[in-house]
């Protein structure tokens, strides 16, 4: 083995961190290229009268509207309600999805009992069941939470199930030879092996939670970003609609990035193709 002095190690670490920082900016620039280009073309086209300002206001007008709403506390108020709804619905639906996915993954009998029903329910669109939820639970929070929960249930259910079933039989044989007890079998083998799938399930569930939120808030609500968008639409204030859409995009990207960074830290061992 090559042994390095502390100084050499330090220099190497510095070089590496410079390289990774440069890599970070390069990645950021490449990822932003398309959206930035789009916004520039949009702005230029709008200013030259190529776009109907009533239907498609320019980015600068949208940003002004966004800042106005933000400064008057409107955006924050609606945002708070929406985030709370999405989070509660996700925790309820995603939690249950994880639980049932693990149960069905472990037992073939449970799978035969529950999976056909779940797969049928999975195919029901939000908009088809939303009227029923409103009829049963009224216009208050319950129907909204249930709608969001219904959406977030399935990605986590399917992926947790898949994660448990994708356990390598060869590693299971090792655990048998080493006489692992049930608890260790779960914590050392089954859960770590299912984690990459479960993380994917969480990300998909969060995405669907946002979709369910907008549907729920547009169906009938007096607050929340979905309401803000719907209200602005009915009064044809397109810039506000865009402001609502932008806040969804930002929040969606932020939550996804958060989960992704947790995933990276947890799954440091994971060794996959990252693309060329």
């Amino acid at each position: 083995m090559v042994s390095l002095t502390n100084k050499e190690v330090q220099t190497r670490a510095n070089k590496q961190s410079i390289r990774s920082r440069r890599e970070y900016w390069r990645k950021l620039a490449l990822g932003s290229l398309l959206p930035v280009l789009l916004v520039i073309v949009w702005e230029v086209a709008g200013r030259n009268g190529l776009l109907n300002p009533l239907l498609l206001p320019t980015p600068s007008i949208i940003v002004t509207e966004f800042l106005y709403l933000w400064q008057h506390g409107q955006l924050l108020k609606h945002l708070e309600v929406s985030v709370w709804r999405a989070l509660a619905g996700f925790l309820l639906g995603g939690g249950l999805g994880l639980l049932f996915g693990v149960l069905v993954g472990f037992s073939y009998k449970t799978q035969q009992l529950l999976d056909p029903t779940f797969q049928m329910l999975r195919m029901l669109p939000h908009l088809a069941v939303a009227p029923l939820f409103i009829l049963w639970f009224g216009f208050d929070e319950t129907s909204k939470l249930l709608l969001i929960a219904k959406g977030s249930f399935f990605p986590l259910y399917v992926n947790a199930f898949l994660g448990i079933r994708s356990l390598d039989a060869k590693l299971f044989e090792v655990a048998k030879v080493l006489q692992f007890k049930k608890w260790n079998l779960l914590t050392k083998l089954i859960i770590p092996s299912a984690l990459p799938h479960i993380f994917l399930g969480i990300r998909l569930s969060l995405g669907i939670a946002w979709v369910g939120l907008v549907v729920a808030e547009m169906m009938g609500s007096t607050e929340g970003i979905g309401f803000l968008i719907n209200d602005a639409r009915s009064m044809s204030i397109v810039a506000t609609v865009f402001a609502g859409i932008i806040i969804f995009a930002i929040l969606g990207k932020l939550t996804d990035a958060l989960v992704l960074s947790i995933e990276r830290k947890t799954l440091r061992w994971h060794n996959n193709f990252t693309g060329r």
């Binding site: 030879v177 006489q179 007890k181 260790n184 083998l189 092996s193 061992w269 060794n271």
Partner: peptide, 28 residues
């Protein structure tokens, strides 16, 4: 059945990819 009296080495190492070397050895 299997028991700790009988160690088994497979053709492939069959290590747990999510555990470090020392944790793989320690196992349960």
């Amino acid at each position: 059945g299997p028991s700790l009296q009988k160690g088994f080495i497979f053709q492939e190492p069959r290590l747990f990819p999510w555990l470090t070397v020392e944790k793989n050895i320690a196992g349960d």
